[in-house]
Write a protein that binds this DNA or RNA. Structure first.
Ligand SMILES: [Zn+2]
Length: 549
DNA sequence: CGCATTTGACCCGCGC
DNA sequence: GCGCGGGTCAAATGCG
């Protein structure tokens, strides 16, 4: 098929949706036959080279009634015919008079160029229109999402306030009035706005304070064993009123903190692997170490921290070095902060919250949803992976930031000052990243903070976490969102001084049986590898120890 | 002296 | 029932 003909046909297709707009044809008419510019559609075609193709013109005029709407198929055919006519006419011109052949050739070339230009311009216009349409669509979706989210937040707020009132009543009945019960309502509201996605514990828990989430699964809601001195000391005032004195002895905060319910949401974890020489990455929060254990299979001890930025904050984290690469620090976050966070800490908090929501918010966010390669279209070429494990009891999202291909992605817009800005991705940025591969500028949501991971003045994990958070929280289905997150992770500088400039970030799907192949996305059951990355270093499974139990 | 860290003991779930 | 391992507690200790 002739190249030109192909081109014209394509332009015809471009404009077919916009009935009546026949820019390419009109442009040709400008060049060849200006007399009928005002006519539209096939009228112009008919007049195309009218002096030489009257036969065809008459033929086509008879074929196609002009009154009816444009028929795409017919349009295509006619345009094809028109091009044949065009070529024939040019040929005749070139051969007709030798003296003018050169001039005619030049004019032909000029016309061709102009045609091409016109076509390109037409395509440009078309793309602009399409872009505007898509943008409008996106804006609409974002608006809808925001509206829904705000509704959800307000609903949760109401629910929390109701629960708070209930708790106050209980406390009053027991003769103990917990200050937290008064404060928690506000706290939770803050947290919800802060985290963008209120986590499941807040939705399912009848009592509102986030501290309840803290208590581990082993803490049973009813103290059925009196001989357990510690258990009776540390907890459950609202269910077992006899413990109130003990709780006072232990301190109100602890009592509230340990008040718990077996909330599955507590299990949701976000594990971040990052290279850092420091014993602990700085994520903007204040942590207090409350324990250290030697983990099995890892000579490096595992440290346990809890957030001390606010009394009773349920957030905890575990820090452990990777057994095989001591420079890799694995930090696992758990829970949601119940207090406002500084900008530096917002990213991580949002990430953990979003990850918890992601992992626990139903089948669409489970690992199953990630089995489809369409969720990671970029992975084979960009070597970036999402790690999700929705498996019970500890669904875990693992962000592997130890391998980064792009050391020069430090430039990014200055973060906004407000620590409470929603990390909601705005505009098409996230889709830009998603669709068009690695973008060097991180799509940070505006409220996210400057970097505080690792050594000062270093670019930090915060970028990655922010982007991941934004991505996760932006889309309840976590499709494009996940893609965007991972894509943005690729653009995040690693957090250490490091010597690891040439690797890609990877996220991993971790399996319940601790089969952490960092090159694969595995299912919970059969460890089916969806997307492999043979080139990535195989990291020891002990590096992500929290996905299993 | 107050706060944070250390560290041994304890709790609990799970597998055998 | 017992042992193992993960997680937490809290007294002891360290530090500014
Ligand atoms: Zn906190």
């Amino acid at each position: 098929m002739d190249r030109k003909e192909m081109r014209i046909v394509d332009t015809g297709e471009f404009y077919r949706p916009n009935s009546g707009v026949l820019l390419p044809i009109r442009v040709n008419s400008d060049d060849m036959d200006l007399s009928n510019k005002e006519e539209r559609g096939s009228i112009e075609e008919i007049n195309f080279f009218s002096n030489r193709t009257s036969f065809r013109q008459a033929e086509k005029a008879g074929e196609v009634p002009e009154s009816s709407g444009r028929n795409p198929n017919l349009e295509s055919d006619r345009e094809g015919s028109k091009l044949i006519d065009l070529n024939a006419g040019l040929h005749l011109m070139a051969n007709s008079e030798n003296g003018q052949s050169l001039t005619n050739r030049w004019s032909t070339l000029d016309q061709n160029n102009r045609n091409e230009m016109a076509e390109l311009q037409a395509e440009l216009n078309r793309l602009n229109n399409e872009n505007q349409q898509l943008r409008g669509e996106l804006d609409r979706m974002v608006k809808n999402y925001s509206a829904l989210h705000m509704q959800f937040v307000s609903a949760m707020e109401q629910k929390n306030q109701q629960a708070s009132n209930k708790k106050e009543m209980i406390d009053d009945k027991n003769g103990v009035r917990s200050p937290e019960s008064i404060q928690e309502g506000n706290k939770i509201v803050e947290q919800q706005f802060l985290d963008l996605h209120p986590s499941i514990e807040e939705t399912t828990q009848s009592e509102n304070n986030a501290e309840e989430v803290v208590s581990s699964k082993k803490r049973k809601p009813v103290d059925e064993s009196p001989e357990r001195e510690r258990a009776s000391q540390t907890w459950e005032p609202s269910i077992n009123g006899n413990n109130n004195n003990k709780m006072l002895k232990q301190g109100m905060m602890k009592g509230v903190e340990e008040t718990s319910a077996m909330n599955p949401c507590r299990k949701a974890r976000v594990s971040v692997r990052a290279r850092s020489e420091a014993p602990m990455i700085s994520d903007g929060c204040q942590w207090r170490k409350y324990g250290q254990k030697m983990a099995k299979g890892n000579p490096c001890p595992r440290a346990y921290y809890r957030c001390t930025m606010a009394v009773g904050c349920p957030v905890r984290k575990q820090v452990q070095r990777c057994a095989e690469d001591r420079t890799i620090l694995v930090t696992t976050y758990e829970g949601n902060h119940n207090h406002p966070l500084p900008p530096a800490a917002t990213a991580m908090a949002s990430t953990t919250s979003a990850a918890a929501s992601m992992l626990l918010s139903g089948p669409t966010t489970s690992t199953d949803s990630l089995h489809s390669p369409q969720f990671f279209p970029f992975l084979p070429c960009q070597s970036s992976m999402a790690s999700l494990s929705a498996s019970a009891p500890f669904p875990t999202v693992t962000l592997d930031l130890t391998q980064n291909p792009n050391p020069l992605q430090f430039a990014r817009p200055a973060p906004l000052s407000s620590p409470f800005a929603l990390p909601l991705p705005t505009g098409p940025h996230i889709y830009n990243q998603t669709a068009y591969g690695p973008q060097k500028l991180p799509i940070l949501p505006s409220g996210l903070a400057p970097v505080q991971f690792g050594v000062p003045n270093q670019p930090s994990l915060t970028d990655t976490v922010s982007a991941a958070t934004a991505a996760i929280t932006a889309d309840p289905n976590f499709t494009a969102a996940l893609v965007a997150a991972i894509t943005s992770i690729m653009g995040t500088p690693k957090n250490n001084n490091g010597n690891n400039n040439n690797n890609n970030s990877t996220n991993n799907i971790t399996t319940p049986n601790n089969n952490n192949n960092h090159s694969n996305i595995n299912t919970n059951t059969n460890n089916t590898s969806i997307i492999g990355r043979p080139s990535s270093p195989q990291l020891p499974q002990s590096c992500t120890t929290f996905s299993t139990n």
